[in-house]
Amino acid sequence: MTAALEALDLTRRYQLDGVAVEALRGVSLRIGRGEFVAIIGPSGSGKSTLMHLLGCLDRPTSGRLRVNGVEMSQLSDTELAELRNKTIGFVFQSFHLLARTTALENVALPLVYRGLGKAERRSRARAALESVGLGHRMEHRPSQMSGGEQQRVAIARALVGEPKVLLADEPTGNLDTRNGAEVMAILDRLNSDSGVAVVLVTHEPEVAEHARRQIHVRDGLIELDTADRNPE
């Protein structure tokens, strides 16, 4: 069975004011379908860079990355956009909802780029919002909702396209404990119910506890992968 994500010796170098910064120095990992993985590391460890690469928002300086069995280095920018649209769902720390747009329209947004008709988009978005318990908030705008609710809208948006991988970058970073716990519970449930692989990026060990596998990143390298200790 093909892995959801398969990285081989990924490196990523940036030029910052003429100085080369090596954010990733050779990362290899394999994340299977339906896995729940946390990538943990202090800030500056390279975990965000890794997430951007895994989400095909960025291209590695060297190394190979297969997403759902597709070698991403061979794809054009347009094909990469399609890959993101169909295979990957993003959840961000700061939600990134369109402010003047209703929850329903926010959730339906990825389907616009898939070329689906309006009725189809709306019915799928409605179902996704109901699955995160926001059936009663369809026509609310982000400013009319709590942080926890906004993040759940963002999760619904990530899921509406039925991706293989959900990448969550500090999804609880802007939430209080109660809302954070609620969001984590939803991710947990989605992972076990729908079988979408969840990759959680965080610097908080308590959040990472939710994942069944933890990958510790430090200085651009994988320091520890719990999968190596107790192989499935």
Binding site: L57, D77, A81, R84, H96, Y113, R157
Partner: peptide
């Protein structure tokens, strides 16, 4: 800019 970044993350192509 952030909205554009988000749209791209969600699958918007350059031409979109």
């Amino acid at each position: 800019t952030r909205e554009i970044g988000l749209r791209k993350a969600l699958g918007a192509r350059q031409r979109d």
